[in-house]
Simulated assay, not measured.
Amino acid sequence: MNLDEKQLESSLLTQTFDFAVNIISYAAELQKQNRFIIGNQLLKCGTAIGANTREAEYAENEFIFISKTETAIKEATEMYQWLSFCETRKDYPNCKDLLNELAEIINILNKTIETAK
């Protein structure tokens, strides 16, 4: 792994961690509105992205790295679905910034997979 790839991973780890923190706050807002089902789904997906990205960083081999990164992408795309639902609802808190942040994470994850393959 070269320096650019390490910098990309470090940046990605920071982004996914920050995203998880933001999702926890957003889910807390939903739970204050008694929207527990959506809030819980967002917590699961939103925190799993960073967890899988972190696991990929310490993968024993390339196969596991790719597998964990692909799992992070799956969680991110599910997350995008849930946030898109929230965005369409006028009675839900605004999540446009979260959607933009997530789109950037998905792009980086996809580039990471392309580079690894």
Results as ranks from 00 to 15, higher is better:
D4E: 13
L8Q: 12
S10F: 09
S10W: 07
S11P: 10
L13P: 08
Q15K: 15
Q15P: 04
T16S: 06
F19C: 00
A20W: 02
N22H: 10
I23M: 11
S25A: 15
Y26G: 09
A28I: 10
E29H: 08
Q31I: 15
Q31R: 15
R35M: 11
F36H: 14
F36L: 12
I37D: 14
I38S: 02
G46Q: 00
G50N: 08
A51H: 05
T53R: 06
A56I: 02
E57P: 00
A59I: 11
E60T: 11
N61A: 08
E62W: 06
E62H: 12
F65T: 04
I66F: 07
S67Y: 07
S67M: 04
S67T: 01
K68R: 10
K68G: 02
T69I: 01
A72R: 00
A72S: 03
I73F: 00
K74F: 05
A76M: 04
T77R: 05
Q81E: 06
Q81A: 05
L83G: 07
L83A: 00
E87C: 11
R89F: 09
R89K: 15
D91S: 15
Y92K: 10
Y92P: 09
P93Y: 14
L98F: 08
N100F: 12
L102V: 04
L109W: 03
I113R: 07
E114N: 13
K117Y: 04
